[in-house]
Lab assay of single mutants.
Amino acid sequence: GTEIELESKNGQREHYTATSEDEARKIIEKAVRRGIKRIELRGASEQLIRDMQEIAKQIGLQYRTDGSL
């Protein structure tokens, strides 16, 4: 699965493990709508990382991946 670590603007951290790319995408989209400061992805697919970079650029988000592409 993909591990997703979120940090909201007030510094609250949340951790999710998505079993599918679809689920990961839903978690990320929800977080973005809620207003999130930072997202870290571990074990994400190349496609998901590309999507994440696109989203991050659009809304000026900090993100990090573990680089295991």
Rank of each mutant, 00 (worst) to 15 (best):
G1L: 14
G1A: 14
T2V: 13
T2H: 04
E3L: 11
E3R: 09
E3P: 02
E3K: 10
I4A: 00
I4L: 04
I4M: 03
E5T: 14
L6P: 01
K9H: 12
K9N: 11
N10S: 12
Q12P: 04
Q12L: 11
Q12C: 14
R13T: 08
E14H: 12
E14G: 03
E14V: 09
Y16W: 09
T17P: 02
A18H: 07
A18E: 03
A18G: 05
A18P: 07
A18N: 10
T19Y: 13
S20F: 03
S20E: 03
S20Y: 03
E21W: 07
D22W: 12
E23F: 05
E23M: 07
E23I: 05
A24K: 00
R25H: 04
R25G: 01
R25K: 07
K26H: 09
K26V: 11
K26I: 13
I27V: 04
I28L: 12
E29G: 07
K30M: 15
K30N: 13
K30F: 14
A31W: 08
A31G: 04
V32C: 09
R33P: 03
R33N: 09
R34T: 10
G35F: 05
G35M: 05
I36M: 10
I36W: 03
R38H: 06
R38F: 14
R38I: 05
I39G: 00
I39W: 02
E40Y: 15
L41A: 01
L41K: 00
L41H: 00
R42I: 06
G43Q: 05
A44H: 02
S45N: 04
S45L: 02
Q47A: 11
L48Y: 01
L48I: 04
I49P: 00
I49A: 06
R50A: 07
R50G: 04
R50C: 06
R50L: 08
D51L: 14
M52F: 07
Q53I: 15
E54S: 08
E54T: 10
I55S: 01
I55F: 14
I55G: 00
A56N: 02
A56L: 08
A56E: 03
A56I: 08
K57E: 10
K57A: 11
K57N: 12
Q58F: 06
Q58Y: 06
I59P: 02
I59G: 12
I59V: 14
I59Q: 14
G60D: 09
L61M: 07
L61G: 04
T65D: 15
T65A: 13
D66S: 04
G67P: 07
G67L: 05
G67N: 07
S68R: 03
L69D: 07
L69S: 07
L69Q: 06
